[in-house]
Amino acid sequence: MRGHSVYKVPQGKLLKTTLEYDETRHTIQSLRITGDFFAYPEEAIELLELKLEQTPLDHTVLVQTITRLIHEHQIQFIGLDAEGLTQGILRCVL
């Protein structure tokens, strides 16, 4: 299945997410994160998209996984955060 969401992150920027997901397993197949936010280093967004493949579409799991990846890869977001990204992903499934 494919879904798309446009989500204004509270106090942040406009996040546009495109998601391909496995309906049966309820996991991410592929993810495209776009928008007018800032991330340092910029290339980290592609890494996040890749590392989140196969992640369950579950709020707690997503926030934890994204938070871990942010720390592991020393990513700094401005106008976006783990909760905002999770919301963007989950809104593709609504």
């Binding site: 994160i33 007018d36 991330a39």
Partner: peptide, 9 residues
């Protein structure tokens, strides 16, 4: 456009 934006969007 910003680095993270979709051009066609």
């Amino acid at each position: 456009i910003g680095y993270f934006q979709s051009l066609t969007e």
